[in-house]
Design a protein around this nucleic acid. Structure first.
Lengths: 136, 136
DNA sequence: CAAGCAGTTTAGAACAATTCTAAAACTGCA
DNA sequence: TGCAGTTTTAGAATTGTTCTAAACTGCTTG
């Protein structure tokens, strides 16, 4: 079962304008066939290498960037040199546990942010990131 | 006038547990004797080098980290490999213009964030960062 | 006010994260 | 199946930051 090709993923990639190559599909499966995940390039690379679909680190970086640009992933920068890719692209925010580098989602349903000033003129809103930093 | 030593800065550094050395005072003057600023290590280093108080890049990094640890500065990470130090340590949030890397403060007076979930158990709140990302 | 020691600075090496390069390997279409 | 354009790859290069070890400086003491 785990060796089978998932046609949905191939379709999803094609719709994003990306050819469903062996490597991209392998990474997409690791990312999207399970619950929401937070990965770094290094962690995903280690995972792929350990599994039966080794993918070079350069390709992991390329693919994560392409997935992000295509809207399949969201990048969250929590600290200098610490960047996560989040498979949850819906509206939500993050807890970041500074003492051990963990990142957790929380839904934005209940959260309301009021009174934000208008974007500087000549710019349009791209996204509002809320990172709640906590420590143990 | 601009060559004079500012005793307040020396005091402020000493209170932070830092010896007021020539280099630290020079950087503190560049940072704190004007309106609130957003600097990077590189930009501050370039500035110091151009002025009459050249300071090595290593010292700029050390000093920024010390100032941040002492609460004199706040670090804002906006993108991978892009970290600003903000001389405004009060409550406020940021606009980040993704297309050109600019960072702007905005006061948090008017902004209310309601409905944030409680921190994960075993952790205590450190800070809530709100970054409003915009593009031209 | 000289001496000495801990704290600081520095250039350069080292390191970590990410991107680039150029060549080999693929993918998809004709 | 052949072929043109994409994609992958290893390794080099780049970028941002920290480390190292030696020289220097600020502060305290005798």
């Amino acid at each position: 079962m785990s060796g089978a090709t998932n046609p949905d993923l191939a379709v999803r990639l094609r719709e994003a304008g990306l050819r469903p190559t062996r490597q991209r599909v392998a990474l997409a499966r690791a990312l999207f066939e399970v619950e929401h995940r937070h990965v770094t390039a290094e962690s995903l690379h280690a995972e792929a290498k350990a599994g039966r679909n080794p993918v070079s680190l350069a390709t992991v970086y390329n693919t994560l960037n392409q997935f992000r640009d295509a809207g399949l992933l969201r990048e969250v920068v929590v600290a200098p040199g610490r960047s996560y890719f989040d498979t949850n692209t819906g509206h939500h925010h993050h807890f970041y546990v500074e003492t051990d580098g963990e990142l957790h989602d929380f839904p934005s349903d209940k959260v309301t942010i009021a009174g934000l000033p208008a974007p500087p003129k000549g710019t349009r809103l791209s996204r509002v990131d809320v990172i709640v930093r906590v420590r143990r």
